[in-house]
Design a protein around this nucleic acid. Structure first.
Lengths: 327, 327
DNA sequence: CCCACACATGGAAGCGCTTCCACCGCAATA
DNA sequence: TATTGCGGTGGAAGCGCTTCCATGTGTGGG
């Protein structure tokens, strides 16, 4: 059944007429080796199609060479969101460039031990957590401290990479004000995600300056929630003239909900989102939003972790207003 | 610096007052163990916070326990596509349920050796390839034969899991015909993806039956290409009254291109897509398309691989027409 | 011409784990 | 009471690899 036995370093050494130690040195490029030995070993490697066994190597070097990416919040809310895909993609690229494997994990929000279990042995070189809660972050095993980075949460006690939600929100809401909107509602993210606090804060601040009343509805980053939120908002505050959602997906849902209500956008109500996902430009009306260097953020997180750089504290990336048709 | 030494199975055994062999039996749940031993070992595991080292385990069991998911076509075209995200997500779920790790790989289309290199040791339990070309598939090392499944390509010489492109296309195009459209253009997928052939074939067949002329434009599954394709189509065949794109993303682009041209949808031209991505229902007009059990397909592929089931040949899944506003 | 030194090399240990095998004590059977 | 059988157990081997260490070979300087 098995039949094909894969070549081991022993086979290579034997074929090259050297010891396993020498073969190892050549293959890894560490330590001295004569040109002659080098040639013979590389030839043998090629001939036998030798590929080092990652497990065995990791076992002895203790240098787990794998980047784990954990996405917290194992729900459709997270899975459908292109934002998550962008983070994954970018982090995976960084890992691929350095030839380290990537492992993907979807962790339910409610399971506090899951992050800890993820350490599964010492196989990982680092861990990038997307949208983690603070409690979840605290369960990360001590062995991994200094090799963890969080993406998308302005947490303080772990290297955190996020867009500057405060400034981004400020920019969008000010744009709304500038274009004559004053009864602006906001659909936030899920309450367990701390990054939303900073955004809501910025929103309240702008409203205070412009003399508006805050109208906050809690969302969950889904489109479905956005549609419902639109209905809620218009029922509760019928004179609303703008809705800002902290997620494009939600904003798209708002657009939909408003449309169903017969409300014209941007005529009656302006709508703005956050993230600038690919579809933001394809909706009708095209969505005004704030664009984020999501790929840069994720790449930076992955790099920090892989470099074992201990960048404690949070790094915020700038976002830029993108004015389209909806606001 | 290092400080914390993680507990090994030896530590557990010592703490529990049993041999390492017994500790291993309890931890893995394989082999006999007295209730007494079982209790003591589990207690020790909890006390020491022991987590088995995956590398060491994989090394001895030779049962690489990791599902690799490789996405071919390392371009924005692929990365932005929600379809890929859905496949990833679903496959990752299956893996998570069985407690096997997932590793993600983005492979450039042009690099034929990359799939082979992916075997990196014998660490993998299986490989799911998304949108592979036939040549790419042929480079998969012999050691992995029987542990590979392809998603999204009607290939024959590897277990392949795909939607029934033929039937799906047939359904959509017939719907177009049924609603009075006869000058129907089609935007295909990239030419290197064999699954498109079956779709084009179905399209031609329906047109032949209904007396229409085929109008085929090659696409690449991106929205940008869709927008350009719309312009090309209207320039080349100005009397076109329907466009069918083999990807929702592309269809959305077509919608956009048509809009820019001042063409009304569905008034002047009907537009239909394929895949039923989340945004299909959110566009204006909402996109008529064909819905696919992408999650089921990906899950089936992952399961087949993980079960070492050798389901050679292709399995096709049904798709269903979703009529919305655009056609 | 000999000694020292660097460099190249092979032997062997050991990473943490699973698993074969031999062993022991016990209850059930003859 | 002597034998069989079996569940529970520990010893030990070994998975494929890196790396320490001791040994061997060549070169330079004295």
């Amino acid at each position: 059944m098995t039949g094909v036995r894969t070549a081991t370093l022993d086979d290579v050494a034997r074929a090259a007429g050297v010891s396993r130690a020498t073969a190892s040195r050549v293959v890894t490029g560490q330590g001295p080796a004569s040109p002659r030995a080098r040639d013979r070993v590389t030839a043998a490697v090629a001939a036998l199609g030798y590929v080092p066994d990652a497990s065995a190597r990791a076992l002895v070097t203790r240098t787990g060479t794998r980047l784990a990416i954990a996405v917290i919040g194992h729900t459709a809310a997270v899975l459908d969101d292109p934002y998550v895909g962008r983070v994954l993609t970018s982090a995976a690229h960084v890992a691929a460039e350095r030839e380290v494997g990537v492992s993907l994990h979807w962790l339910p929000l409610a399971d506090p031990g899951s992050l800890a279990r993820l350490a599964d042995g010492r196989g990982l070189g680092g861990l990038v957590v997307v949208n983690p809660t603070r409690p979840a972050l605290e369960t990360v095993p001590r062995t991994l401290r200094g090799r963890v980075a969080a993406v998308g949460v302005g947490a303080r006690h772990v290297p955190s990479f996020d867009v500057d939600n405060r400034a981004g929100t400020d920019g969008v809401v000010r744009h709304l004000v500038r274009t004559g909107r004053h009864r602006i509602a906001m659909v936030t993210g899920p309450s367990w995600l701390p990054c939303g606090d900073r955004a809501v804060d910025a929103y309240r601040r702008v409203l205070r300056d412009s003399g508006g009343e805050p109208r906050v509805v809690t969302g969950d980053f889904t489109a479905a929630r956005g549609a419902k939120a639109a209905v809620e908002i218009m029922a509760r505050w019928p004179d609303t003239d703008a809705v800002f959602a902290l997620s494009d997906l939600t904003a798209l849902g708002v657009l939909d909900g408003l449309h169903a209500l017969g409300v014209r956008v941007p005529g009656d109500v302006a709508v703005a989102g956050f993230d600038d996902i690919a579809f933001a430009g394809l909706s009708r009306p095209a969505l005004t939003t704030s664009t984020h260097p999501v790929e840069d953020i994720a790449a930076a997180a992955a790099q920090a972790v892989l470099d074992r750089r201990d960048t404690s504290g949070a790094t915020f990336y700038p976002s830029a207003l993108v004015v389209r048709d909806s606001a």
